[in-house]
């Protein structure tokens, strides 16, 4: 149990503006304020809000257990603070420093408050230190969670971004694949391709794998499944962009793409698709 003494809480309340000034000065010294992704005013406002929440919660709360209701507001405040910093690309160190740099001014304050009582002083320094550590840890955890959310969202965006189905000609769709073809991506790709085949009434789909660095058995299996699904819809599929080194690797791996029409590049695949559609390309006289 390490609830702060009433005298500590009173001291913080009475010296609020001095503490804030010292806290901000500390942040400034550490270089936390010279980042153009966050303004000084914003940090000052956050510092003020946080100090008030800290006082309110530690007047009733048990410092050893942040999961309790008394700390809900402080926790939420730190989670929001972490999220906004994560979204702006600030790092965890910068975010955690916000809390940890409150230690110095608070310790200085305690020195004054408990000048004649070394035992109380050491108790309160310990209590404040423990409390700020816990809050700092919570901030770091919240920050990491926010970062993970940001990364996950980017991954999802990438997933869709990297699977654009383009119409090359009436009845001819192309899907330029780029990057690693994992199961999740293949699923997204396959769905959007099949969807577009229906929407556009296309009968030829070209899957271009120029941008796929490795064609192993898993990628091959995904490709085979996609081709089968396309055929089940009554359309034809051409795989293009099989570079020489990939072709040789496929042979050694023992993959059988026998039933699939393949072309070295997208241009050849398009030429074939046009031919199959009964079209010829001629040079204008």
């Amino acid at each position: 149990m390490s609830i702060l003494k009433q005298a500590t809480i009173d001291a913080i309340k009475q010296n609020e503006s001095a503490l804030l000034t010292a806290w901000i000065a500390g942040l400034e010294q550490e270089g936390s304020l010279s980042d153009n992704r966050i303004t000084r005013d914003e940090v000052s406002a956050q510092a003020k809000d946080f100090l008030r929440l800290l006082v309110a919660a530690s007047a009733v709360g048990d410092a050893a257990d942040l999961s309790r209701g008394e700390w809900a507001e402080s926790r939420q405040f730190l989670e929001l603070l972490s999220r906004s910093r994560a979204q702006r690309g600030l790092d965890s160190q910068h975010t955690a420093r916000f809390i940890f740099s409150l230690k110095r001014p608070l310790f200085d304050q305690l020195q004054t408050t408990y000048a004649g009582d070394p035992k109380a002083l050491s108790n309160e320094v310990w209590a404040v230190s423990e409390l700020l550590d816990l809050l700092g840890m919570h901030t770091i955890r919240a920050f990491q969670k926010s970062r993970e959310e940001v990364i996950m969202r980017q991954q999802e965006e990438l997933l869709e971004l990297s699977t654009p189905v383009v119409k090359l000609w009436d009845g001819v769709l192309a899907l330029p694949m780029i990057g690693t073809l994992d199961s999740q991506r293949t699923q997204v790709v396959m769905e959007s391709l099949l969807q577009r085949i229906v929407e556009t009434g296309s009968d030829i789909a070209i899957i271009d794998i120029t941008g796929v660095p490795t064609v192993d058995t898993l990628v091959a299996q995904h490709l085979l499944k996609t081709v089968t699904a396309i055929r089940l819809m009554g359309a034809d599929c051409i795989i293009s962009g099989i570079r020489p080194q990939i072709a040789q690797t496929i042979v050694h791996l023992g993959l059988d793409l026998g039933g699939i029409v393949t072309k070295a590049n997208l241009a050849d695949a398009l030429a074939l698709a046009l031919k199959r559609s009964g079209l010829t390309v001629t040079r204008a006289e």
């Binding site: 660095p213 192993d216 040789q248 690797t249």
Partner: peptide, 9 residues
């Protein structure tokens, strides 16, 4: 390049 690709695969 072709041996790199084989090894990586």
């Amino acid at each position: 390049l072709v041996d790199q690709t084989k090894l990586v695969t």
